[in-house]
Every structure is written in structure tokens, then in C-alpha cells.
Design a protein around this nucleic acid. Sequence first.
DNA 1: ATTGGGGTTTCGGTGCGCCTAAATTCTGGC
DNA 2: GCCAGAATTTAGGCGCACCGAAACCCCAAT
Lengths: 214, 214
Amino acid sequence: MTHTTGAAEDYLKTIYAHTEWQTDLITPSALAVRLGVAPSSVTEMVKKLAASGLITHVPYGPLALTDAGRLRATAVVRRHRLIETWLVGEMGYDWDQVHDEAEILEHSISDRLLEAINARLGFPAHDPHGDPIPAADGTVLRPPAVLLADATVGHRAAVLRISDRDPSVLRELAADLIGPGTEFTLSAPLTIVLADGQSRLVTPAAAASIWVTA
Amino acid sequence: MTHTTGAAEDYLKTIYAHTEWQTDLITPSALAVRLGVAPSSVTEMVKKLAASGLITHVPYGPLALTDAGRLRATAVVRRHRLIETWLVGEMGYDWDQVHDEAEILEHSISDRLLEAINARLGFPAHDPHGDPIPAADGTVLRPPAVLLADATVGHRAAVLRISDRDPSVLRELAADLIGPGTEFTLSAPLTIVLADGQSRLVTPAAAASIWVTA
DNA sequence: ATTGGGGTTTCGGTGCGCCTAAATTCTGGC
DNA sequence: GCCAGAATTTAGGCGCACCGAAACCCCAAT
């Protein structure tokens, strides 16, 4: 229907990402910060996206995706995560190195190539950070998750996903052999005990990036 | 030095491509036709490229790449051909289907990913159409070649490359099992005899797309 | 030597996505 | 209830790459 250029795709993706693990709606200024653009640029794009029926927006209010917008957004996220999975699985990238490359390729790869990659990977359900890969129809399988920083002491759980927003957190965790699937018990704030009995101290930044089973 | 956006890369690539198998310089109007843009658009971009020292141009005259421009151009061509080779070699594409995808990806893939692909393919010297893949330093290994349409009857030779400009020619030749490396004798105009004795009639369009050993 | 027509350039204008600066609107604290 | 400060929008502008129309240049044929 609508053309949806690369820039517009980034707006939709970012609006979607904000509500993927939280419930509150994103504000224009928060969107501007995430995208690294001026607030006035957001106002402009928001007008276009609303006119195309991809988001809803009351003046001076927050932003929400429509069903059509969510479909576009998940399509972009699907591309992004499949590309990340491919870069790690086949092209020798580490999980802290894939974000920027995927950020660009997600806007230029064709559906055909994407599906060829998907097939080669065996139709993965999660990307290297544990994030679910949306299906082609936009459905996303997302288990209930809690931020490690919000988990109660004594909680026994497994790592579900780690936000890829901060590469240094990813490198730090990789060095500690902590990744999606890692089982642990929270023995004290910021302290986890792994299955083999070893304990690890996690930084506040990491605890705010790690989502674990409820 | 200069930024060189996707559009500028297309201009440089097209100027380079014109002189790869011929010696005459390209004119602005021919460039406009190849790129599918208006002549006035070419004038504008030519001014910028000349100002950046990537091409030389006297008003109302033809265009030529400088050394710097040729280096940029071959870098783009290198990307294009490696991507094509990868799409055919690993992603299940046929050689008549790769052009459009490569046309887009050549502007967005990183050097790192390109070299990962290159290594995976075993550092190929030619793309699926027989075109040489420029080295990273811009060198191109190009054997002397003659257009099949210009070859003399009785000429015994092998197919070197087939221009990918016309996908229908590629499909037609693929169906006839003619590709780079195919050995033959030109028994009459537009008629070739293959190594196994079978003869094939090629269309004028195909004869104008096939380059053979001299 | 002139001239006509094709190739090239100039000129004014478009859409996109971005910016800064200046309104405007909303909201929380008094 | 008011009002300062923060968030948002409006207004004006920029660079890029494109366009069509009009002006211009050049050469080949007379």
C-alpha cells in the first residue's frame, strides 16, 4: 500500500521495539532520542505515518502502532533478527558485532534472499540475543519475562534475552559465558549463581539489559 | 576523502562498465539512458564527481574516470560481482536472477561482510557471467575478448563472458547450456557447433552479448 | 559559410528527511 | 488556579537527487 522508505521503517521498528518488553507507549521525544534525530523531525514523520494509517497520534500525545503499522514493524524486526542470526551463525560475527550491519541490510535485502537465509538457518525462532524472530504474518512468540534488575533474591530462572542496545554489556556477558539459556539463581542483588556453582557479579547496566523467565 | 553516496557509486560504476570491454568514452546522454535518468541529472552529478576529482569532463565532451574514480568504480564492481557469485553459489539463485539484488546490496554491505563472503567462496576470480572480479586494490584481470557477433566464421573459441544486461538472453542461453567456459566453433553467422557436435543457433541479441576468446 | 538539429547545460522547481529557532501546549508544584 | 519549565509543534531552510522546459553549443550537411 504505502511505500515505507528506510527512514519510515526505522521509526516503526523503534516504536514497536519500545513496547515489545514494556507496556507504556513511547513519546515523540523518547523516539527522537532513540533515533538520534531532532524532535521536530519526529513530528514530521509522525504526521506522514499517521496519514498512512500506520500509527495513531493525538497532538501532544504519545504514539501507538495501528495493526497495519505493527505488521510493517514486525516485518522489519524479522529482517533485522534473521540477518543477525545469519551473521553469527554463518558469517563469523560475534553477537556484539551484528547490530550495525543488520541495521543497514534490513532495509535492502529482498524477501527472496531473506527467505533463502531463513531456510539455510533452519527457520530459527530466536536471534543470538534471545529475541523472538517474528513470523512472516507478524505473529511474535514472546514468553513472559522479568528484568534481572527487578527479580527477587532467591529467584531461580534462565536467561531469556539480552538487549542488544549496549555492545559493551554484550561483550562483558560473553566473557562471563552468560547468554540466552543460561540457568542461574539470584543469590543477592546483582549476584547470580550458575548451574555449575560458580557465582558471577553482574553490573547494574547488565542487570538492566537481561530478561529472565518469570 | 569524498563521501560517494549510492547514487554517485552508480554513476561511477556505469562509466567504468562502459569502457571495460570497449575503448570509446561514454557520453552524458548514453549515461543518462543506462541509468534511466534525465540528461540534466547527469550534468549535475557529473559536476559533483568532477569537483571531487573522480572524473574528468570538458563541457559538451565525453566522460572519463580519473585514477581515483576508477578505484571507486572497481570497488563497487567488486562488490556487485562478489554478491552475484555468492547469490548463485550459496543462495540458490540462477544467473539471470542475481542482477537486481546485487544492484541494491552493493551499496549497503560492509567491507567486513564482503570479505567474509569472499573467503567463503574461496576468493573467486570471476562472477557467474564470466566477468572478472576486481581485486581489492582495483586491479582487474581481463583477457582479450571478441564479441561473438564480430567473430569470423570458422573461429574456434570458448565463451569468456556474457553481458548480464538482458536477463532474457541469459535465460535463453542457460536453456541451451551455454555459459562461460563453453567451447565451440563458429560454423556460420549466428551458428555455433559445441564440443559434443551439437549445433546451436544464437539470436542476434545473444551474439551481441557473448564475448569469446580471441 | 551558414544553418539545423541533436547533444548538453542552465534554470526553476519537487519530494524527502533532516536541522534550528521560535511559537505553542501541556503539566506539576505552589 | 496559576505559572514555570518541559514537551511538542510550527516555520523557515538545507542538501541530495531527481525532473521538464528553455537556452545554448557544436558539427555535419548543404
